[in-house]
């Protein structure tokens, strides 16, 4: 059972949806599809903005309270990045199907209500952004997300980036952060016992990782950064899209 912490993505592979993406990281794979702007049911219609509907489907079974909670986090986040005021009285519907989750030996008996809701959140957020980009829905910004597990033993503490599920369960505290492309904190979810100093440290590392702070002068530098092994969150989104665009425009050459 080898789980790659490196992200991988496929764009626009569902032909009937307006946009789609598959994203995998840390053993989680999520297929996302977006339809929009489409007609909205009368009772959900908003006069000044687009209604955003997020549906999360678990890998096994039907969605429960955990999926509703994830949906509400995602919905309030995505409303911030889509230019919803450009599409009043419409609906943008995002469906996220979890297709694989890492195997868990210690909690194998519980499939549906599996442990914490945090480990999957970065994958869901990242899939959503790629899906929206694939559908060319006008966005105010993009986001990048990362998770951390922190093990404190005495005075020393170990920060694990993109932890595995075992590391997640054994950690003193776990943190999920998402930053916008402007470097602002958009989502922060933390669980476990920690202090403000630890959170500050996590914030700094997360920000460094998510938003390539060393803003490159030209796009060619960016491309090189994006292609090497240890990609930042935003750089990954960018390099994925660049690959897709160059593949789509291949006929021109």
């Amino acid at each position: 059972m080898t789980i790659s912490a490196e992200p991988s993505a496929t764009l626009s592979h569902l032909y009937r949806a307006d946009g789609s993406a598959t994203f995998s990281q840390n053993g989680y794979t999520v297929i996302g599809a977006v339809n929009g702007p489409i007609e909205v049911q009368r009772r959900d219609e908003l006069p000044e903005e687009a209604a955003v509907d997020v549906i999360v489907r678990p890998a096994a079974g039907v969605g429960g309270t955990r999926e509703r909670h994830l949906e509400s986090i995602l919905q309030s986040t995505i409303r911030q990045i889509i230019l919803i005021h450009n599409f009043p009285r419409t609906l943008i519907q995002i469906t996220l199907q979890i297709t694989s989750t890492p195997e868990n030996d210690s909690a194998s008996s519980k499939l549906v209500q599996a442990s914490s809701n945090l480990p999957i959140l970065p994958t869901l957020l990242q899939t959503t952004v790629l899906t929206l980009l694939s559908a060319s829905i006008p966005l105010a910004m993009t986001l990048a997300s990362i998770s951390f597990a922190i093990n404190s033993t005495g005075s020393s503490r170990k920060i694990i980036r993109n932890p595995t599920l075992e590391e997640f369960q054994a950690a003193n505290s776990v943190h999920v952060l998402a930053f916008t492309s402007n470097g602002q904190l958009l989502v922060a979810e933390s669980e476990g016992s920690f202090t403000l100093e630890v959170w500050d440290e996590v914030y700094e590392i997360g920000k460094d990782f998510c938003c390539d702070v060393t803003e490159p002068a030209g796009d060619d530098i960016m491309q090189q950064d994006g292609l090497d092994g240890n990609t930042g969150g935003m750089a990954f989104v960018r390099s994925t899209l660049e690959h897709k665009v160059s593949a789509d425009l291949h006929w021109k050459d």
Binding site: I73, S76, T77, R79, Q80, H175, T180, N182, Q184, L185, L186, V187, A188, E189, S190, E191, G192, S193, F194, T195, L196, W199, D200, Y203
Partner: peptide
Amino acid sequence: GETKMLGISKAGGTVVGREQVKQMV
């Protein structure tokens, strides 16, 4: 006696950053 944090949950906007979280605590 000291403030221990057991959870942060933030979503839906970009205003709250490090400083605001510190004030909240």
